[in-house]
Structures are given as structure tokens and as C-alpha cells.
Amino acid sequence: MIDPLSLLLDVQNLSVSFRRYQRGLAQTNLNVISDLSLTARAGEILAVAGASGSGKSLLAHAILGLLPANAMLSGVMRYDGQPLNAVRQKQLCGSEIALIPQSVTYLDPLMRVGDQARGAEKSAERMERQREVFRRLELPLPSERLYPFQLSGGMARRVLFSTAIISDARLIIADEPTPGMHLSQAMEALSILRELADAGKAVILITHDVDLALNVADQIAVFYAGTTLEETPAADFAAGPDALRHPYSRALWRALPQNGFEPIPGFQPYPEALPDGCLFGPRCELKTAACEQETPPMRTVRGGKVRCVHAA
């Protein structure tokens, strides 16, 4: 069962919306994340899996306090038992909480990568640490003198990973670290995350590739239209539809190539047109009148959490 001591990040009912001005002063709110809950524990990889455009990157930005000024945030985020507010985000980001970004565009094109890996902190220890991490990631020493455009894709990826390892952060958020990679490269990247988790870090792996994530993740949070529909041990996902709790998770399982490759009709709702009640309702085969009444609360069912009135 869940060890309360290892709980590092606890997000409850997080909602993020953007204020938008339409013609004149008419103002609308665009809900990009609604009622999202997830927990990240030390020593574990939590994979946040969902389709493109479901707001996964915004979740990372919300945790790191990087949302633009017109974003409104509600809900509770707690880091290490204490509320994670803007002040603490400023203190913790970079030292306690680290982001591994998606692509080489997150590196300054005009700065040598060694300098970027070390960050703003300048000291002999930091330099030593950077070299040690580069060695560990099999980045040849001269590569610290290179500029991002001189790196191969795999090297750039490892430099991005190195930033998180050098910082020695306890919570690492990897935002889509694998797209565009060969399977072997992707597995290599994920194995670095596994090592970090085994060393006691809490890792949040944001990905659209459930299949790949299953290889390393301990927990899977199924992300849909800006919310988590289910949080389940990865073992349940591997076990199949009967072990899963939410109809969408089951549909996701069946859509995997090795499990029938079956799509379900419909598409993920746009933030402008979210349905009432359960966000998955319009595509759900189990939908009843109760589903449209209100957003189902997160319930604990069979050792996992699910946002569905039908789950048992």
C-alpha cells in the first residue's frame, strides 16, 4: 500500500484556465485542466499518459509555476507536505524540482552545452559534477564545449537529461522525452529515468506513448481532456482491461497495437466545448443520465483511483 512518507507531490483537483478577451471586453475562460489529481512518490515513476492536446505540458508548467500571466489556477498542490505556492515554486525550481524538456530548442543556441548543463551556478564542484554526469551519460568530455547545433539528437537529449541529474532534484518532471526517437534510444532515455527513480527520486513521465511508458513506470495516470480519469499501478495496465477501472483506460488498452488496435469513435473534446459532467461521457459506452449530472469524484477502487460512477 501507499507509504505516506514517500509521498512527494500531491496534486488535488487542480484546474487551470486561461482568461481570454473576445470582441470588446467580453471575457471567457478556457478550461485547459480541470479537476486533475495525481500523486508522485519518491522512488517511483508516475507516467502521465494521454493524447496530444490534452494539456499534459501545461500540467508540468503548472507544477513549476511557469504558466503565463493570464492563467488562473485553483486546487491544491503540496510538495513534501507543504503547500506549493508561487513563492515556494521559485525557491524549489531548479534545485528540488527539475524539468527535463522535450527538445533541443530548450537549449540556448548560442551557449556551450557544458555551461548550460551547469546552469547559473558557478563553482568548481558544479563543474566536477557536470563532468561526472556527462561521463555517466556517456557524453564524451569534449562535448561540453559544443553548441547545441553541433549535437546529434541523442546527445542533445542526454544533455537535457544531465541538467536534471546535475541539479540533484528530488522531483523530476520529464515532458515527452521520447518522441522522434528510435525504440532503442527511447528505451535508453527511459532507463535513465528508471535509474533516477531507483536512486530515490520521484519521476513524473509525461508521455503520449502508454506502451513505452509501461516498460518503466510504476504508476500510470490516464490523462484525458485536461484531467486524470484513472491512476493505476502499471501492473494493472499490463494485466489488461479487467484490471483497469475506467472505460477510457480500457479503450486505451484495446487501442494498443498488440491488443487489437481498436479505436473508439469520437474525439477528445476541445477546451472550448467541454461536456457537462464526466468529460469522457460523450464517448462512453456505459454512459447513463448520472454521468451528465456532475463530474464524478475521484474514488479509490481496487488499489487505484478512478473518476467514474460505474467503476467497481
Partner: peptide, 13 residues
């Protein structure tokens, strides 16, 4: 507004 400045902010700069 570039990605690398966003990343720098994520690193507490």
C-alpha cells in the same frame, strides 16, 4: 518567449 528561456525559468533563474 523562447523555449530556452522557459527552461531557464524552470531552473529557477
Amino acid at each position: 518567449e523562447s523555449d530556452y528561456v522557459l527552461f531557464a525559468r524552470a531552473r529557477g533563474e
